[in-house]
Amino acid sequence: MTPLIEVRNLSKSYGSHLVLDKISFGFEEGQIIGLLGPNGSGKTSLIKILVGLINDYSGDALIDGRRPGPYTKSLVAYLPERTYLPEWMRPVDAIGFFADFYADFDKRKAYQMLNGFELPQKQIIKSMSKGMQEKLQLLLVMCRNARLYILDEPLGGVDPAARAFILDTIMKNHPTGSTVLLSTHLINDVERIFDSVLMIGRGQVLVKSAVTELRHGGRTVEDVFKEVFQYAWQVN
């Protein structure tokens, strides 16, 4: 069976700083994968390569056996770590936009979720708070019936109540059989939802494992994370 996500000898550097150094891994379809690593470990670079936002890398990054391009972009629902909707748009325009470009976008569900999230349909995005904009983006991504959801730090910079809300939205709305790749460094909140984890740091894949295997001996994902990334917090 072809892995849905396959990375082979992938390297990416910024000037002389090597962020990803010939990493290789693969994940089959239908899992919730935690992409874990401290800040600056290359999680976002890896994600941006997979979704086609970074193009100068060496090696292969494949989704369903294909390099990032129009086909893979039709399979992937991507939530970046920043707000990216045009300021002049209103939620109703954003829904129309997604419905036009993504065949798997569920417009009816989007309007239902818009009401559920208590977001006004016709307020321009520029006048919305950051929290409202993030809610809208999450809604747009989760209203797609995509094969792969790539969510970059969806829990970063929000309070515990919002984190619970975001996780709940992701868990309730991703279709059965789809794959979710979620990057985070807030492991405690999310480790219960992961089927597999990929820990990256120092440009390498440090851990790639099913969560059930990691938990042998009563350890948690967070314990393993602390053990693996202890170096990140060591001074001299």
Binding site: V51, L53, G69, P70, V76, R82, Y84, L85
Partner: peptide
């Protein structure tokens, strides 16, 4: 700009 995250992840060339 930030909107590039939207434009370049659309399923178009």
């Amino acid at each position: 700009g930030n909107q590039g995250y939207l434009s370049f992840t659309l399923p178009v060339s």
